[in-house]
């Protein structure tokens, strides 16, 4: 960007990409008394060791952690509805030492309806987020805080239950709309499948 008197200021455009694919292993446990717990975690340890980046402060403690729970309230409604309704809370963070601290949380109300292999679901949630970036070198000190606009997130999605394999896609409408695609394997469903094949 051109500045005054022939100066030029660079805003490094990063990688000039419109989206960043991100994958992290996730474990969901439940349902127990209509409640399930989800934990997701990823760290840069593997890449740091294999790429010899142990001395790179900015990346060698990179960590992604998320957790959340969901509780079924339709179980308390009895026969009032055949739609599953749940409330949930989810929180996740991306951190790297003191340099980076990104946090987001979501309180949501979700509903789903299952027909044959397909589960259609939707939800509405209130989300909050914050970002802190802090680093300094010989010439420059950056201390940058950003608080996200608390916004309402509306989600619609569907899951195809192909036996133990679950293929899922959802669209989130919010300040930053997002499309998420997921592929999962249900261990409990796998056991059911094996029992089913034994019968045949």
């Amino acid at each position: 960007m051109g500045g005054p008197g022939g100066t030029k200021y660079y805003f490094p455009g990063g990688l000039d990409i419109n989206y960043v694919p991100f994958a992290a292993p996730q474990l969901s446990i439940g349902s127990l008394f209509g409640t399930d717990l989800t934990v997701r975690y990823a760290s840069a340890n593997y890449f740091v060791k294999n790429l010899g980046l142990e001395d790179q402060d900015w990346i060698n403690k990179f960590r992604f952690f998320g957790w959340g729970f969901r509780h079924s309230i339709s179980q308390w409604l009895g026969d009032l509805t055949n739609i599953d309704i749940a409330v949930g809370y989810y929180s996740q963070s991306i951190t790297s030492r003191d340099y980076l601290d990104i946090r987001a949380s979501l309180i949501s109300l979700q509903a789903s309806y299952q027909k044959s292999l397909l589960t259609v679901y939707g939800g509405i949630g209130i989300e909050s987020s914050s970002l802190q970036v802090k680093y300094e070198d010989d010439n420059l000190a950056i201390d940058y805080d950003l608080t996200g606009v608390n916004s309402v997130r509306v989600t619609i999605g569907a899951t195809l239950n192909a036996g133990p394999v679950k293929l899922n896609a959802e669209y989130n409408v919010s300040e930053q709309s997002a499309i998420a695609v997921g592929l999962g394997i249900g261990i409990n469903e796998l056991k059911k499948e094996e029992k089913s094949e034994e019968k045949w």
Binding site: P21, A162, P164, V165, L183
Partner: peptide, 17 residues
């Protein structure tokens, strides 16, 4: 059947990557 679903899963993951 399980093999077909596994192949399907691998194809989906490869496509995403």
């Amino acid at each position: 059947m399980v093999m077909k679903k596994t192949i399907f899963s691998v194809i989906v993951i490869a496509a995403l990557i």
